[in-house]
Design a protein around this nucleic acid. Structure first.
Lengths: 218, 218
DNA sequence: TTCGGTGTTTAGGTTTGCCTAATTTATATT
DNA sequence: AATATAAATTAGGCAAACCTAAACACCGAA
């Protein structure tokens, strides 16, 4: 059972996550609320096992929390598409109504809505709509290998769902949505030095680079 | 601005209204809450001009309150129909989702939804869907004149929207949805003695009877 | 006309989610 | 290493809706 407020916090954290823990005041800004209110809610979400929270250290979603956040995103984007496709809304007037509709609790409704729309993979703004299991269609088929030095990008997915690989990503705090920057490319073995989030600079092998789908942002 | 809780109270009062003021504990029962909570809310709704409330005397909706309640009913029934017609829900599994959807605030959404469904006049349960101005389609074309003695019925509408006539109805606390019972028919002038609500027994002329649409309940 | 019972209201608490102000912690700079 | 500043947390409150228990009002019957 999650309340409307909780869902909005999860969604905000999900949106702001980029490999590093998200700070309290970023969340406050995103939700147009105050830091003190956020701290309070973080404690509650943490107790429910939806986020990892350490005082003064920011938060990240747990698997459970991320799953929930993604379902809210799924509903939001499905409703946006519904409004545009079936009710002739302009894609600019769709957001605030979808903000309300995304909190309707009925799995059946969500799945049938998706079906009505032809199980779409992208919403009217071109954002991917996660499927019922939380899987995203890839925005692009560009892999990290193809980026030049200094490029910035967001991880949009992985090519092969190998368990060891996923574990490695987890270890490096690289998940879908993580922002990164190519610092340098090593000519010798085609490995890359990349900056994940603000501070962490790491080396990744060419094999890893070729297996990571990204969407360039710069 | 009405909150979700307020809307539910208005809807309950609307549903329970039958010409007489509605009692606190009836509302409590309808909303699965306690009488004390109801009293509190009644004071608030009264301050907002949505109900007429006198301590210990029960409540009735004001014009403003009724309009609001009817819009909630409209949305509820439109969503029910949508779920059944467009998403293949069974009409028995529709109610609780519609309870959530009915509170979505967007006039545009409501009107477009109605349009998508072909501006329907009845929901899947056969209940009439009020139009955007709050007007109900008549369930039947039977008028009060046609009922035999002892029949019970609900007022579903009026034939001619004459101002004097409507004022008369108002005076007698007869509105759409009011339950009544035919006590006796006067052979001489075809006027009727009817019981409105629990106690009020009144006489109505044949002209009035012929102008009132009703739906028999017994 | 008083009395009792039913229904209603008042009084006083709880929870959720928000707030401001004061304090504490982490960090960046000298 | 000491300190200033920015960010986060704690403390103490508020409003909306709910609750229980106690007090009160209305109405029918004795």
């Amino acid at each position: 059972m999650t309340t409307l407020a909780e869902e909005n916090y999860l969604k905000a954290i999900y949106k702001l996550a980029n490999g590093e823990p998200v700070g309290t005041s970023k969340i406050a800004e995103e939700l147009a609320t105050r830091a003190a209110s956020v701290t309070e809610m973080l404690i509650k979400l943490s107790a429910k096992g939806l986020i990892n929270y350490k005082k003064y250290k920011g938060v990240s979603l747990t698997g459970k929390g991320r799953k929930l956040a993604i379902q809210v995103v799924r509903k939001h984007r499905l409703w946006e598409l519904f409004l545009v496709e079936k009710l002739r809304f302009g894609w600019d007037e769709v957001h605030e109504v979808a903000e309300q509709l995304e909190h309707i609790q009925s799995e059946k409704l969500t799945e049938r809505l998706s079906e009505l729309l032809g199980n779409p993979q992208f919403d009217p703004h071109g954002e991917p709509i996660p499927d019922k299991h939380g899987k995203f269609a890839h925005h692009s088929v560009e892999t990290l290998s193809e980026l030049p030095a200094k490029a910035e990008a967001i991880i949009t997915g992985v090519k092969e769902q190998n368990a060891d690989f996923l574990q490695l990503l987890d270890q490096e705090s690289m998940t879908i949505g993580t922002k990164l920057r190519v610092v340098a490319i090593t000519a010798f073995d085609a490995s890359m030095r990349i900056k994940v989030g603000k501070e962490n600079e790491i080396s990744v092998s060419s094999k890893v680079c070729g297996n990571l789908y990204v969407k360039r942002t710069k």
